[in-house]
Nucleic acid binder design. Sequence first.
DNA 1: GAATTCATGTAACTTGTTACATGATTTA
DNA 2: TAAATCATGTAACAAGTTACATGAATTC
Lengths: 193, 193
Amino acid sequence: MSLKFALLGLLTYQPMTGYDLKTIFDESINHFWSASASQIYRDLGTLENEGFVTSHIEPQEGRPDKKVYTVTGLGEKAFMAWVNHFPPQLQCAMRYEFLVRIFFGSRIDPQDLIFQLQKFIREQQEDLRHIKTAEEELGQSEEYPEIEKFYWGLTASMGKKASLAAIEWAEESIREIQEFTAKQPESTGLGKN
Amino acid sequence: MSLKFALLGLLTYQPMTGYDLKTIFDESINHFWSASASQIYRDLGTLENEGFVTSHIEPQEGRPDKKVYTVTGLGEKAFMAWVNHFPPQLQCAMRYEFLVRIFFGSRIDPQDLIFQLQKFIREQQEDLRHIKTAEEELGQSEEYPEIEKFYWGLTASMGKKASLAAIEWAEESIREIQEFTAKQPESTGLGKN
DNA sequence: GAATTCATGTAACTTGTTACATGATTTA
DNA sequence: TAAATCATGTAACAAGTTACATGAATTC
């Protein structure tokens, strides 16, 4: 449900192609709601069928033609209705497959676990850097109204806090695993069955 | 992919029904990977077709019969293979629909936004309390080996940190929205269409 | 010469959600 | 007497992933 309205919302700023939307997504909304290119193209088709957007082809030379989507009046109304009606239960779920593996950590070789946690930290640091860069660019740019920049900044803040929490957790976890396995005699429950 | 292996993993502790699995899920893995009852029953069927679990009916009086699932040798091997082979990119994505709405916060009445953020805080506090309770019960119980309790504790830690980060963020955001809207003249970009 | 960027999608598949159906027992 | 708990699922649908296909221009 969310993706369609997120696309509609981005298109209220200006008409764009599916490719543009994907690019913007990856730099912003992606940090708390991801979407693949094929999903975006498919949902744009749905939005067009529903009369929420229209499209026109812009021919280009040396590059593939562009298909530019524009929000209709109906689409703008639908977006405003969606964004202003919060569901009774605010939807927000973590989907950390990595944590499912940690849950079953007793079946994993502690050395490998620590290695994966270190990798996790690097990935989260990368994410953090990415958000910070986007944030700085946004702060310097003058092509967006202050109010948009303000709210985009709030979501970036949440992204940073989530990454920092994950990094802190992983660092503590590594230390705790080291301590725990040090005082653990031998058998870890790790069987080769 | 993950859900099937999470179920398989839980079943390696002891044979259980779909209902049992759903109950355990809601108290533990649910905090970072959610699943509905119908999905669990469906995936149990798949696991059985794949030969990873077997089932038998236990008749009961006054209550519906139980269908108890047991992991096979093949299933245990499949689980061990899954849990020990981390994907090249560690999968962990937030899916916070709420943040998508905040991203478009300029289209929302600031008073309503603040109200929803306060609600968000209450929901996160509820989650936090829930995790803490589960954690305490786990600490006191003596029916699980120390090593399992240790790793379950690590995942609970991450859940707590995530909730705390969200609460902190929402509190700061409320203050920032109040400041921002105070110094903002009138028009918010909030249109009635 | 290989990879990346630009630009579009389709098809097949897997995963996740929602609504529905059944029905006795127990607790509030 | 209304609800929650125990216990199972099916059916229909919506959302998300993966692999594939095309092809010129540009950058490494």
